[in-house]
Simulated scan of single mutants.
Amino acid sequence: MGKTKKLIELENKTIEILEKQAKLQKRSLKNYLEFMIEDTALNFSEPSEEYKAMMDDMIERDENGRLITHSLKDILKQYGR
C-alpha cells in the first residue's frame, strides 16, 4: 500500500495541545498525528470477511441456543479476582 503526503494547517494552540499528547505517549508529533488519523480511518472501514463470518457464526449459535456465555462475575471468580 502506497503513501501520500498532505499539507495541513492547524491553529498554533491546536499544535501545542497535540504536542503535549504526543509526548505523553512518547511519540513525535508527526507519528502521533499519523497514528490518530490511521486509527480513526480504521474505525470507518468495513470489518474483514473473517470477522463478519465469525460474528455470523456467533449470531447463528445464539439464535439456536448453542452459544455459551459466562458472566463477568463468573470469569473473575474463576481466575481468583
Rank of each mutant, 00 (worst) to 15 (best):
1 M>S: 05
1 M>Q: 08
1 M>P: 02
2 G>Q: 03
3 K>N: 08
4 T>E: 14
4 T>H: 15
4 T>G: 06
5 K>F: 14
5 K>D: 05
6 K>D: 11
7 L>E: 14
7 L>K: 03
7 L>G: 14
8 I>C: 07
8 I>M: 05
8 I>E: 06
8 I>A: 07
9 E>T: 12
10 L>A: 11
10 L>F: 12
12 N>H: 13
12 N>Y: 12
12 N>M: 01
13 K>Y: 13
13 K>R: 03
14 T>P: 04
16 E>R: 05
16 E>Y: 10
16 E>H: 06
16 E>G: 08
16 E>W: 08
17 I>H: 06
17 I>T: 02
18 L>K: 02
18 L>V: 00
19 E>V: 00
19 E>M: 04
20 K>Y: 00
20 K>M: 04
21 Q>F: 06
22 A>V: 09
24 L>R: 04
24 L>W: 02
24 L>E: 07
24 L>Y: 06
26 K>F: 13
26 K>N: 13
26 K>R: 06
26 K>M: 07
27 R>K: 03
28 S>I: 02
28 S>T: 06
28 S>W: 01
28 S>H: 03
29 L>M: 03
29 L>W: 06
30 K>S: 15
30 K>N: 07
30 K>H: 08
31 N>M: 10
32 Y>D: 04
33 L>C: 01
34 E>A: 02
35 F>V: 11
35 F>R: 06
35 F>S: 02
36 M>R: 13
37 I>T: 10
37 I>V: 09
37 I>N: 05
39 D>W: 07
39 D>I: 05
41 A>S: 02
41 A>F: 15
41 A>R: 05
41 A>E: 05
43 N>D: 13
43 N>H: 15
45 S>P: 09
45 S>K: 10
46 E>A: 10
47 P>N: 05
47 P>I: 15
48 S>N: 04
49 E>Q: 10
49 E>K: 04
50 E>N: 09
51 Y>M: 07
51 Y>H: 02
52 K>E: 10
52 K>F: 14
52 K>P: 01
52 K>T: 12
53 A>T: 06
56 D>R: 00
57 D>A: 00
58 M>I: 08
58 M>F: 15
59 I>V: 06
59 I>D: 03
60 E>A: 15
61 R>H: 07
61 R>F: 12
61 R>C: 02
64 N>S: 14
65 G>F: 03
68 I>L: 10
69 T>A: 12
70 H>E: 03
70 H>L: 07
71 S>T: 15
73 K>Q: 11
75 I>A: 01
77 K>L: 09
78 Q>H: 12
80 G>M: 07
81 R>I: 09
